[in-house]
């Protein structure tokens, strides 16, 4: 259905399929083992919107992002991300959604034995083989995050902020409509965190949807946007 809907762009509303760049959750319950982290969660994010997921540790911010990019499969409910029914994906199909969105993680998740450029280029080569001249796209992404001059350096020679910017370059190199960021400013100083947030807002102004989990009060006050608060009290036995 989403594929069909994509061909007939204006018909999304009639068909009831979320539009590209949007996120829709209905009655979603997810968790680990015998515990539900959240139950019956409903969420709508429109294309081009900037949304913060806030709440104390254990509230389910990271779990919600993992549900969105397919690492955690919801126990109940429906999840549509960029027109893809994520709740229907099996573990071997999760690449389908991850190739459509850009993911940024608190721990950067860079490959230590590859240079900054290779870290951005390898996913482009392996996951997006149809992109013309992937090296040019990788260099453009590094330029956008201000690290073109560090392209041939290894992650361990870069600062925490620079490593996070390489991770952002990797996430945006294939020009996704949606960026999912899990505490991207959690491991960097306040100056770097401002730079990263300015970058996210630039990407948002270019039309990208951004969903970012954070508990950084400084970020929330300096860069205000729609905020969705998750409560830890929602934890319950499955």
């Amino acid at each position: 259905m989403p594929e069909l809907a994509r061909r007939f762009g204006g018909w999304y509303r009639k068909l009831g399929v979320p539009a590209p760049g949007s996120i829709q959750l209905r009655n979603v319950t997810a968790g680990y083992g015998g515990i539900n982290v959240f139950s019956d969660l409903a969420l709508d994010v429109r294309p081009g919107e900037f949304v913060y997921l806030v709440g104390p540790s254990g509230a389910g911010k990271s779990t919600l992002l993992k549900v969105l990019y397919g690492t955690v499969r919801p126990r109940r409910g429906s999840v549509f991300v960029d027109g893809v029914a994520v709740h229907r994906l099996h573990s071997w199909q999760t690449g389908k959604i991850r190739r459509r969105v850009g993911c940024i993680f608190q721990e950067f998740e860079l490959l230590a034995h590859l240079t900054a450029l290779e870290n951005v280029l390898l996913p482009l080569q392996l996951a997006h083989p149809r992109i013309h001249d992937p090296q040019a796209y990788a260099l453009d992404a590094l330029e956008l995050v201000g690290l073109k001059d560090k392209a041939n350096e290894y992650p361990q020679t870069l600062s925490g902020g620079q490593q996070q910017r390489v991770a952002i370059a990797r996430a945006i190199a294939h020009q996704p409509r949606i960026l999912l960021a899990d505490e991207p400013t959690g491991n960097v100083d306040s100056r770097t965190s401002s730079e990263i947030m300015e970058l996210f807002h630039q990407l948002n102004e270019l039309g990208g949807t951004v969903v970012m989990a954070t508990h950084d009060e400084y970020v929330l006050s300096r860069f205000p946007a729609r905020t969705i608060e998750l409560q830890p009290g929602l934890l319950e036995a499955a």
């Binding site: 990019y69 690492t71 071997w92 999760t94 690449g95 389908k96 959604i97 991850r98 190739r99 459509r100 993911c103 993680f105 998740e109 860079l110 490959l111 390898l122 996913p123 392996l126 996951a127 990797r170």
Partner: peptide, 15 residues
């Protein structure tokens, strides 16, 4: 760690 990162960025599992 490398495989986890490749899976996270959407590399096809066959690759």
């Amino acid at each position: 760690p490398e495989l986890r990162i490749l899976v996270l960025v959407g590399t096809p599992r066959l690759v």
